[in-house]
Structure formats: C-alpha cells, structure tokens
C-alpha cells in the first residue's frame, strides 16, 4: 500500500483539522468522562447483561475491552487522565473466576501499589475505581457505574499532576 507524498500530507492535514474540530466544540461544563477498562469474559458480559435486561445507567462511561484485567496496565489509567478522563474504572472477574486463572490476581497486586503511589503523588484516588463484576452481575455493573459517576461528579475540578490543564 504505497502512498504518494501528496496523499500523506493531505491525510495528516485531515487528521489535524479533525481533532482540532472535535476539541473546539467541547463545552466547559460538559458531563465528566469516565473510561472503563474491562475484561472480555466477566465484566464485559456483565455489562452486556445489563443491556439485555434493559437496566438503565449513567451515559458517562466509555468501555474499552481487553482480554483480561491482567492486560490492563495501570499506566493506561494515567494515559486516560492525560486525555481528559475524570474517572477510570478497572473491572474484571472475581478472584478465582479469572478466565486465564490468575490475571486478576496479578492485576490486583499491581493496582494495590499503583493506587498508593498515585495517591501519594497527589492524585485523588477517588478518581480510580476497581471492581469485580461477573458475567451474571448486570445489576452490579449498573450500580458501580452509577455510584462511580455520582462520585466523580462531586469531585472538585481536576488539578492534579496528570490532569489536562
């Protein structure tokens, strides 16, 4: 797939204009954005179950699906903050239920240290939520999202070191 240089330049220009355009339209008092990193086997299915059961919850959440909580690098959380997310949820299978036997255990260890580090460096740890939600817990997904969204809405404006100024 060879591109000619004219096309490359045009593509680059398109990208730039597009991102400038979408950023411009943002309103200051817009709803806070929440990113949820979830595992494919438990929480994603739990969220789907909330859907098939027609439960209702806050619209703020955007789900990013990964195979396992073991894949959800804590540094993704920092990246999400940098890109303007006000809250980040990490969710996967309950202990003992991991599709890959131990991904959630490894992840739990990492997040234990990571959360302490974040908090120590002055990040409000209320902005990061961690939960175990199984494929049958559509109702838990709904309550975790709603409670977390409400909590995030009540937080003061971001001023910590990873927030976009």
């Amino acid at each position: 797939m060879e591109n000619n240089i004219v096309e490359d330049v045009q593509n680059a220009r398109d990208e730039k204009e597009y991102s400038a355009g979408s950023a411009k339209g943002e309103d200051k008092d817009k709803e806070p954005r929440i990113i949820a990193f979830v595992c494919n086997w438990c929480t994603y299915n739990g969220a789907d179950l909330a859907g098939t059961s027609r439960m209702k919850y806050a619209e703020n959440v955007r789900v990013i699906k990964l195979p396992c909580t073991g894949r959800i690098d804590p540094l993704f959380v920092v990246e999400a903050f940098k890109k303007g997310a006000k809250g980040v949820l990490v969710s996967g299978c309950h202990p003992g239920d991991c599709h890959y036997t131990s991904g959630n255990y490894h992840s739990r260890r990492k997040y234990t240290a990571f959360r302490d580090l974040l908090s120590y460096l002055g990040v409000d740890i209320n902005r990061v939520e961690f939960s175990w939600i199984s494929a049958s817990e559509g109702n838990k997904w709904v309550s975790v999202i709603n409670e977390f969204t409400n909590k995030i809405k009540l937080l003061p404006d971001n001023s910590d070191i990873f927030s976009k100024k």
Partner: peptide
Amino acid sequence: GYLDEQIFAEIKSLAV
C-alpha cells in the same frame, strides 16, 4: 489484537 498502540488510540479518540 490488543496492542498498546490500539488502546492508546482508543483513549486518544475520547480526548476531551
């Protein structure tokens, strides 16, 4: 299928 770059691109697409 779940490259770091892909996850970053997803996050970036949501930038506010």
